[in-house]
Structure formats: structure tokens, C-alpha cells
Amino acid sequence: MTSRLKTLGEAGQAVWLDFIDRRFLSDGGLRKLVEEDGLTGVTSNPSIFEKAMGHGDAYDAGFRAIAGGAEATAQDLYESQAISDVKAAAADLRPVYDRLRGKDGYVSLEVSPDLADDATATVAEAQRLWATVDEPNLMVKVPGTKAGATALRTLVEAGVNVNVTLLFSLGAYQAVADAFLAGLEARVQTGDPIDRIASVASFFVSRIDTQIDQAIDARLGAKDPQSADLAALRGKVAIANAKVAYAWYRTLLASGRWQALAKRGAMPQRLLWASTGVKDPAYADTLYVDSLIGPCTVTTLPPKTLEAFRDHGAVRPTLTEGVQGAQGVLSEADRLGLDMDAVTRGLVQEGVKLFAEATDALLGAVAAKRKTLLGDHQNPHQAPLTNNPQASAAAGPK
């Protein structure tokens, strides 16, 4: 029987795994998902690497090989192993990339979250990652901040594949889409090809409902006179927000501006649904997958959600269902004072902060590993646990 995940692919939605781990890769776990479930991509972030590297012994041999260098720091150890994993994942996905002629088959690696508000440093870091990994099916992840959008335009013009992350609002997504098109248009002006430049716009889902539902629950607890209307919005705002973004995306693809680029072979910057794991146990565990299925999109699934959808997910073109109703949900949220603008702005700031904290935890765990592996032979130079953009730009791979 055809895997439900493969059926998603047949419906035009790519399935990416939101997970990376040394043992999973070496045991052939990614290759198996590609072959059996039609998986076409992988994403990573500091939180994922912290869990992978900070626990167990899967990375000890790799750490030991690098740690003997007199000047090796925790940052050096992390970067060497992260890039090793990304290159291994890129190799597993290369057949997909080749078969689809660059339309999919990507693995993502994130720039330091400390650079989220510095476009120049983000560009430098992204270009360093791009050159160091040196695989055509790499996507460098940059945050969807104002600086990130500026960096995106420059990186696309330079021919770098980019995954723009931490998008929560339609306005932020529109700024990113405009920057992507501007980068392609700049390449056209200089006569450079645009047919193998890939990008995704990672639009986050469940985190929005978590914030909105908390606000709703607080008002329900206070016996708000609008309680019935508020309760009706629980678990609906994030999906409505995503559907409205997808409706705008389809309008963009039909525009003359995009069609002019498409005629030159440009690939669209696909909307990617991120944060698809359900946070509230009251909701179906495949809610944010079942509700957001449509062509020319990507869904990123953590392992638990992937397994749940494989078991009992429902495949139908839900992204184009009830778009007018979705707009009504957002209007109702505004009428009830749920302030989506403030929520989405706060979520960007919180997302950057959480990834920065995960990076610090990751480097702390790696430093502890280094001490355990080398003991008294470790080098006396202690790497800071927060990234230094100037040092990072001149250092080895990250």
C-alpha cells in the first residue's frame, strides 16, 4: 500500500524531516524515508543539534578526531560535526535533487541566531557556510527578520539557496517574497542564470495557536463576556493565518512579475509549513498537516508527527478549502482584541531567543564532551558560548 506520506507528494506537497542525527544517518534512516515514504528534504536548527550532540556517544569519535588540535574550541567541534551530518544528508538526498532537477532534495543548515538583526554579518556567515559545505542541495537558513530579508536578496543574487525561517505573519512573508524576486531580477539584469536557485519561506504554525489559545484561556478564566466567541477560535487562528498566506502566494505566482521570471526557468519560493507538531493534546496529532495540504508547498515534520501522519493522516487539498472562512477567523480575532500583530512580532523575537539559547546549550554540551574526552590534555583556550560574529566570519565551518 502506498505510504500516506508518498500520497502527500503526489498531491504536490513535499515532505521534509525536521530532524538530523549521526546514528540515524549512518544507519540508513534517511535513505529509508526517501525510498519508502518519498521524503525529499531535511531541516536542522541549533535545538536539533543540541539534542543530537549533547546526549549519547554517537559523536564521540568525531569529537575526538578534531579535539586533539591544539586550538580546537567547542565552536570548532560543533561546526565540524554539524557540517559532516549535513554533507551526509545532502549525499542521501542527492538522487532526489538530481531526479527533480534541483526542484527538491535539500538539507538546511542555520546561520547563527546571534546575527538575526545584522544583514551584513548574516550574508557573510551564509556565504561561508555555502562555500564550506559545497553541496548544490544545501539551503542556508536565515531568520525572517528585516535584516534577514535584506540578506536574502543579496544571497539570492549571489546564487545561494536560502531557507527563510521564523515567519509568522503575512506581512513578514510578503517582504521575504519580494526580496526573493528582487534577488532573481538582479541576476537577470547581469545575465546570470536563475533556473537552479531554490528557496523556501518557512511559515510557522502551532506556535501561533499556543500563544493565541493562552490569551483566550486567560480571558475564559476571567469570565470574559465574549467567552463564547473566544472559545470558538481555539485552535483555528494558526491554520487560518496559513491559509490566507497561501492564497496570497497563489496570487503572486499568477502575477506578471513572477511569470516573467518563471519564463526564464525560475523556481518558486515555496511556502513551507514549520512547527507542525501539535502542542495541545486536545488537538488531533496531525492537525497542522491534514489542514495545510496543497500543491507547490512543503511540510516539515518532526519524527513523531511524521509517524502519526503515516499511520492515520488524511490527504485532501485542504489549503484551498474555506479561505473566506479563514479570513473571517482572522477578522474575528482582531474584533475580539487578540492582536495578531503583537503575537507574531513577539514570536519572532522569542524564536531568535530560543535558538540562541539552544546554541549556547549546544556549545556548553560540546565543551563538556571535549573535557571528558581529553581530560587534562584539553587546550586552555575556552571558547565563548555565545557566537562572536567577527570571529565567526573568519573562523572555520559553522
Rank of each mutant, 00 (worst) to 15 (best):
M1T: 04
M1L: 06
T2F: 11
G9C: 08
Q13D: 02
W16V: 05
R23K: 13
F24R: 06
S26I: 06
L33V: 08
E35H: 13
G41N: 04
I48H: 05
F49P: 04
A52I: 00
A52H: 05
G54K: 06
H55D: 15
G56E: 01
R64M: 12
G68F: 02
G69R: 14
E71A: 10
D76L: 07
E79M: 11
Q81L: 05
I83C: 12
P95T: 02
K103N: 15
S108E: 11
T120W: 00
Q127V: 12
R128N: 12
T132W: 00
V133I: 10
G148H: 00
V156C: 07
E157F: 01
A158S: 06
V160L: 12
F168W: 02
Y173F: 14
L181K: 04
L184T: 04
L184W: 07
A186E: 06
R196E: 07
A198T: 04
V200T: 02
V205A: 03
R207I: 09
D209H: 14
G221S: 11
Q226H: 12
A231I: 05
G235T: 04
K236G: 09
Y249C: 13
W273L: 07
S275L: 03
S275W: 05
T276L: 09
K279Y: 07
Y283M: 14
V289S: 15
S291N: 05
S291Y: 11
G294C: 00
L301V: 10
L301H: 02
P303R: 01
P303C: 01
L306T: 04
F309P: 13
H312D: 11
G313P: 02
G313Q: 01
V315Q: 13
V315W: 11
P317I: 08
T318M: 13
L336P: 14
L338Q: 02
M340R: 13
V348Y: 03
L354Y: 00
T359C: 13
T359R: 02
L363S: 02
V366M: 01
K369I: 06
L374V: 09
G375P: 04
D376V: 03
Q382Y: 02
T386G: 06
P389Y: 01
K398F: 10
